[in-house]
Amino acid sequence: MYADPQKRVLTAEEAELIREKLGLNQPVYVQYFKWLATSLQGNLGYSYKTKAPVLDEILARLPNTLLLAGSAIFLTLLLGIPIGAISALRRYSLVDYFFTILSFIGISMPGFWLAFILITVFSTRLGWLPPVGMRSYGQSLGSIQEIIDVGKHLVMPMLAMAVVEIAYWARYQRSSLLEVLGQDYIRTARAKGLKERIVVWKHAFRNSLIPMITLVGLTLPDLVNGSYIIETVFGWPGLGRMGVQSILIRDYPVVMGVTMLSALLVVVGNLLADFLYIFVDPRIQQN
């Protein structure tokens, strides 16, 4: 019941004028090529809603989304890989079963439902974390307090986004390490009488990381997907929330811009993964 939309009937001339102004009376393909031509020059058009350049709207929100997605990736690497490695090394132990079941649950839970749980526990019941937005206003903000404040706002959306990814990464890391441990050169290394620690960490673990890089490429679209829902639930002022909002009100230039950027983020992420490959895997370097 927010806006009480007052229904106004536009006259045919008024509507025609607006259509002409927005170029909507041209055939779709003409509109498309016009858009393509201008966007290649860096002009993504103007938001129907705010009249501001779409690029401005996007650039203002991009850092927020990158902060959220970036910290989710960081957390994923920090927890996913060690958990996977431990599971693999202690295969079929209690720890392994525990983490296996936990990561299955993580993969199976809808992110927004996890968000509900987090909000209920940490915000409603315990009152530790703010449930909405990216920062509080109203305190005298020194730079350190401000960072802490943003950090507090970041915790829950980051967790809600990262849990699924941590689970995936742990599963992949586990099977990747298991596969490497079964390779001949590991057997050779062990036969040579190398210390188990060196065999595992220097040979097996490092090699098991190489296939993980591919996962980066798969994680990025997932994170972008997640951002639409998680940013909406937590009122995070990022691209995802803007994307959902603009779909709901049919703000086409913004929808196009957000899609472009999402795709671009994914492509750039994949490129980074490729470079990482070259960096990590000496076999590729030689070619």
Partner: peptide, 12 residues
Amino acid sequence: AEVTPETITIIE
């Protein structure tokens, strides 16, 4: 083609 999203600001 026929939608005039401008109505959004006008209706409220």
